[in-house]
Amino acid sequence: MSLALQTFSSVKDANAALQAAGTRYLGGGTLVVRAANEGDVSVSSLVRVTDPGLSQIAVSGGKIRLGTSVTMAAIARHPELTALAPAARAVGGPAIRNMATVGGNLFAPAPYGDFAVALLALDTTVVTEAGEVPIETFLADRDTSRAIVTAVDVASPKAESFRFLKVSRVKPKGVSVLSIAALLELAPDGTVTSARIALGCMADRPIRALAAEKALLGCKLTPQEIAPALAAAGEGIAPITDPIASAWYRAEVLPVHLGRLLLD
């Protein structure tokens, strides 16, 4: 293995260095160094940025900005990020959480990317030097985008409107069978007035459950009323098969776990 690390103090200089073939950005390294250790020769050079601004968490006026280098552990222990903490805590074990970054999670292929599932449900904006894009656009283009993600902007969810669930076989730490995040607004009588649901492991990257979201509108969260939404949950999914579960199994259990999350 030969890997060379280049260190820059600014994102601008690092973006320029990333144009070279075989060069990749180094976040916490839990995926990219692992790939190098496993003999992935497509990466010959890593680029990192030491700007401390990339590790900042800013919370003000209902808005959260997470710098790309913010770790899962930093989110899990932050007193103003309690709504996001369960999704951050769902990533790996303690050492992985001390290393795994927000930016890296946005690029993590399924079965990884649990935190990105939460960010998708929360309608996050992804920030690069070139500008800001909605997370769905970012996810669709991430295989070809080379620009360094510098931060994500999230509207702070009310604790009662945001739900997150990760299903794994090994507890407390295990790779996802699937993960689900849901942002729900309810009218005072309990009817759903808006729903945004994101799924992990139901494609190679986080996707929205658009048909289920639509079917939930106007429903109360009771077993009878959510049944059409659960039946629609599988529309448009293409779950992954890996040593944890087959695509068939993941598709079978998705409505069960979505139901549990909605009725919780």
Binding site: L26, T30, N37, L46, A73, A95, N98, M99
Partner: peptide
């Protein structure tokens, strides 16, 4: 060397880290 076993764990600046995935 994949981050899964934890045998390489060390403490860096007070935090548990995996030395196999740290440059």
């Amino acid at each position: 060397h994949q981050g899964t076993c934890g045998a390489c764990s060390v403490i860096i600046d007070g935090e548990l880290r995996l030395s196999c995935l740290t440059l």
